[in-house]
Nucleic acid binder design. Structure first.
Lengths: 227, 227
DNA sequence: TATAATAGTTAGATTAATCTAACAAATAAA
DNA sequence: TTTATTTGTTAGATTAATCTAACTATTATA
C-alpha cells in the first residue's frame, strides 16, 4: 500500500535541485529560465514548460517573463534530494572505494531512489556524517546545513598546520589533479613559503610531499587549522 | 564521456526481467503476451508494442500471435538485472537492517542504477554472496547461478536438524508471517512430529520455540540438513 | 528614446509508455 | 466442423519530456 503524499518525477527533482543551486549562487535567491536551461542541458522552451508545472505544484514562485524563486516546499524538496545525493556520495567513497571524482555521477542516479527507511538507515550506517567527500555539508533530516568553519588555503598563514576539509571547484579535472598530488580530504597541509609575485605556495602535504600550488589551486581548497 | 554500448530503459529492463521469470516458470521457456502484461500490471496492447521494440533490439524472439522466448543477449541482460536486484536485497538486509519483506520494493528501484564499478564494488563489499536474503541464488558476473542443494521442509524426516535456507513464496504476507514465527534465514528447524491427516508439522525452531506449521507453510520453506 | 541584444514564451512536432475500443487469430468445446 | 472462448493485435488517443522555429518582452546601449 503505497501512499502518494507528493510524488515528484525524476525530471522534476532535477529541476528543483538545479534551481536550488542557482538561487543560492545568485545570492538574490532568484534564477532565470535560460540559466536554468543551460544548467540542465535543455532548451529554454523546455524549461518554460517545466516551470509552469512546478508552479502548479506550488514548488516555485514564477510569473511569465519574471524571475524564479523556490517556495518553502520547493526548498525542502530540493534539500532532501541534496541530502540523499551527499549521503550516497559518502557511501560510495567510504564503503565502496570510489574516488573523489567518481562519486558524483553515480550519486546523480541514487539520489532519486524513493524510500524513507533507506534514507534513515543509510545515514545511521554511515555514522550520521555531516560532510560529504568533497567537504560539502549534508543537510540534516530537517534540511538544516551544518556550518564548516573553514578558510581558503590561499588565505592562510605560513608555518601552521591545516587539514584539507573541502573543495570549491567540483570539476572532474580538478579532483583528478588533486588525487595525483595526494591532496585528499583530511590530509594535512603546511604552507612553507608564498611567492609574492604570483601568490603560488610551497606546501608540505602529510609531512612528506613538498609541492608548489598555484593560486588557482589554493583558491579552491578549503582548510581548517589543526590543534 | 559515456559510451552507449546498449542502453536499456527502465521499462525495457522490467519487461526483460518479467520475461525471464515467466519463461523459467513455464519450463517450455516460452511466455505469452497476456501473461506478460498481467505480470507487469499493464494492458496486453501495451505489451505488444514493447515486444516489437524488444524484438527490434534482438532481445527476444517473437512472431505475431506467437510465443515469446528470450535470445541469449536478452537472457544475459535479464540475469544482470536479477544479479543487481539480489545484491541490493542482500545489502539492505545485511547492512541496513531491512527485514525480509521490506527489501524487495526498494531493490526494484536500485536494480536499475547503471554503473559497472558500483556493481563490482558492492559485490566485493558484501563478500561475494551467493544467495540473497530469501535464499534465492545470485547470478555471478557471467550470469551463472549457484546451485542450492536444498529440499522442501514438507519432505524432510522427523528428528533431524535442518536450517532454513530459502522460501518459495515471496509474498509480503508470507514473509511477515515467518518473521512473527521467528522463522528467519539460517535459523535451525527440527521436525518433532507430523500429523498424518493434514501433514501439519510440530517443529522446534532454534532449539527454543515449538510451533505447528501447516502443509501450506512447510511446502514453501527450503531447508538443508545440518552437520 | 529608439533600437539592438538578450531573455523568455508559444505553437507545433516527436518519442516512449501507456490507455481504450475494436478487431483478428488460435484454441477449446459442443 | 462450426461456434464460443481465449489470446493477441491494430488504430487512435493521452501524458511527460523534449525539440525547433517563430514570436514577444525586457534590458542595455548608442
Amino acid at each position: 500500500m503505497v501512499i502518494f503524499v507528493f510524488m515528484l518525477s525524476f525530471t522534476e527533482e532535477n529541476y528543483l535541485k538545479a534551481l536550488f543551486r542557482l538561487t543560492q549562487e545568485n545570492s538574490d535567491e532568484e534564477a532565470g529560465t535560460n540559466e536554468l536551461a543551460a544548467n540542465l542541458g535543455v532548451k529554454p522552451a523546455t524549461a518554460t514548460d517545466m516551470l509552469k508545472r512546478l508552479k502548479e505544484k506550488k514548488l516555485i514562485d514564477y510569473e511569465k517573463y519574471g524571475k524564479i524563486t523556490l517556495t518553502n516546499t520547493g526548498k525542502k524538496s530540493a534539500l532532501k534530494i541534496i541530502r540523499k545525493h551527499r549521503l550516497w556520495e559518502t557511501f560510495l567513497y567510504e564503503k565502496l572505494d570510489f574516488s573523489w571524482d567518481e562519486v558524483h555521477e553515480v550519486a546523480e542516479q541514487l539520489e532519486h531512489i524513493q524510500s524513507e527507511k533507506l534514507l534513515v538507515q543509510l545515514d545511521k550506517f554511515l555514522g550520521f556524517p555531516q560532510f560529504d567527500p568533497h567537504g560539502d555539508p549534508i543537510p540534516d533530516k530537517n534540511g538544516k546545513m551544518p556550518l564548516l568553519k573553514a578558510m581558503l588555503l590561499s588565505e592562510v598563514i605560513v608555518n601552521k598546520r591545516y587539514k584539507l576539509v573541502g573543495v570549491c571547484n567540483h570539476s572532474t579535472a580538478f579532483l583528478q589533479f588533486l588525487n595525483k598530488t595526494s591532496l585528499t580530504i583530511n590530509n594535512s597541509i603546511e604552507v612553507k613559503e608564498i611567492q609574492a609575485f604570483d601568490k603560488s605556495m610551497t606546501v608540505l602535504i602529510n609531512n612528506k610531499n613538498q609541492t608548489i600550488l598555484s593560486n588557482e589551486v589554493t583558491q579552491n581548497l578549503l582548510v581548517m587549522l589543526i590543534g
